[in-house]
Design a protein around this nucleic acid. Sequence first.
DNA 1: CTAAAACCTCATGTATACTTGAGGTCAATA
DNA 2: TATTGACCTCAAGTATACATGAGGTTTTAG
Lengths: 147, 147
Amino acid sequence: MDTTLSVGDVAKRSGVAVSTLHYYEEKGLIKSLRTLGNQRRYHRSILRRVAIIRIAKQAGISLRLIKSHLEKFPTHEVSPSDWQQMSSEWRAMLNDRILSLTQLRDKLDSCIGCGCLSLRDCPLRNPEDKLGEQGPGARILEEEKQQ
Amino acid sequence: MDTTLSVGDVAKRSGVAVSTLHYYEEKGLIKSLRTLGNQRRYHRSILRRVAIIRIAKQAGISLRLIKSHLEKFPTHEVSPSDWQQMSSEWRAMLNDRILSLTQLRDKLDSCIGCGCLSLRDCPLRNPEDKLGEQGPGARILEEEKQQ
DNA sequence: CTAAAACCTCATGTATACTTGAGGTCAATA
DNA sequence: TATTGACCTCAAGTATACATGAGGTTTTAG
């Protein structure tokens, strides 16, 4: 009886598919040892690592970004203090996402019924104001009215 | 001088690429009339429609869902009251997204340093409790400790 | 009227995050 | 030991949301 886990074990215990574990390994998010017969074997810490990946995904963080965060802990084993650091970084990202969605919702509230949706004037449009400098032709509703 | 708009016009005025307009048309989100020479011509109301699509996308709503919302207004022209109805529906969706992100963030807060991440016990894991019934083997940290 | 700019369709490419299947090997059990 | 289930690699498929390019046509400006 081994203390290591096979892919199947990890799949069952973590709730992700075997193919997903293969994929994560291919993308460099997890690593495995191999038996002489070339089968994957994992340390039990893989479960925590996979759990972290899933939580981050749920929060809308891309695998690329998750990978870069996990790479700060090259030991592959993420300690509680590492987890603390990561979760505080992700909390900041979550706050950003929450803030932008909240702002969008509030703009939606303030724009209800106004129907302007002007590239130049409407707070819902063109958040970067990139096109605001393009001169004339930005007012949508007014032009619709002109006809 | 025509009151209709070509794809190029719409692209410039709405800030999306011509290829995107083609794509939206292919997916049934927008429609066009054609000249005798088969070129697309749009009513000016297309600008509002495209604006709505972009705003919804920005809010994280998929094209499929946007399409289904827009299909309730088969006239292709979305009136301010239609817009009002849609924006209230989307506000509800935004509220849902905001709520789930906020809950995730709060769980993150409450879990900081605990490091449990147990499939069975941790509030961050397995939100559906799908695997919670799988019997033993759900406690990650405890098993890690056991070694 | 002619030439350039804009347009057309259709196929293919890009990125993300996986899943599925083929063809073959390894390992645990009866 | 034999067989079955689990595992391996590699290729291709799926879905979303577009961008790019080829090869050809239409529109517009001078």
